[in-house]
Design a protein around this nucleic acid. Structure first.
Lengths: 131, 131
DNA sequence: TTAAGTGCAAATCGTTTGCAGTTCG
DNA sequence: CGAACTGCAAACGATTTGCACTTAA
């Protein structure tokens, strides 16, 4: 299933490094721009392809921003994390929750599902925006 | 901000009705297909526009499916249900969980967020497909 | 050498928009 | 009538793909 990526290249390294430096979630375009700013010779296509590889491998998480862009971030193993997002300003707080982890696994197992994965996001209006 | 939609039309009614009937989250395409099946004369463009109007009004929630499609559902205040979806065949089991409800509310409150809403979906492979 | 990796340009796909015709009020 | 609303086709922006060229091993 993760039988892609066989060689190590300048570009691939660069993308990984850019992801490291980014910390949070970044779009392919963002990463591409950063890479270019850092003087990397790489195409947007390759950024996309590399990100895809990494995602298949499970090295990066892929989320969707509210306007449909895919955003990526290097993944600390297969650990899940969720977000508390402000509907107004877009500010996001990262949260963890074994509670939800357990729930997802439990429910899935009960229904005979395997290879379980889940998505959980909380939306609301932050203090600042609530006025 | 919600200064669109002034008139009542056959198409707009149809979209609202389709959303009612749908219950869960549906993509514009899905809704369009349902509408056509029900014999409605409407264009995909209008479905999109209507959905946009309703979203601006706050009558529907807009989310993004994992593959970037926008999915909509009529917004019944803050009532929630979740889904356990098979990645292979798409089969979905509807699930409820006060557990998750509580968690979302608790976390949000802790961070000073209001008008809380959330999304939680579990993905996996069902027994049939795991074969 | 040679398969994996890359870049460019063209192709996709969901969604939006320009514009001319239609309809509600 | 006149402003909303519609539909179609063209435009869009993010992502993918076909193909010829590079490059790591």
């Amino acid at each position: 299933m993760s039988e892609t990526r066989k060689r190590s290249t300048r570009q691939r390294e660069a993308v990984s490094r850019a992801l490291e430096g980014a910390g949070g979630f970044r779009s392919a375009q963002d990463l591409f721009d950063s890479l270019r700013d850092d003087g990397a010779k790489i195409s947007l296509t390759t950024v996309y392809r590399t990100l895809q590889y990494l995602a298949d491998e499970g090295s990066v998480d892929v989320l969707r921003s509210h306007d449909g862009e895919a955003i990526y971030r290097r993944c600390s193993s297969s650990e899940h994390h969720h977000h508390l997002v402000c509907r107004e300003c877009g500010a996001a707080v990262e949260i963890e929750s074994d509670e939800v982890e357990d729930w997802a696994k439990r429910v899935a197992t009960r229904h005979g599902f395997t290879s379980v994965d889940h998505l959980a996001e909380i939306y609301g209006v932050c203090q600042k925006c609530a006025g």
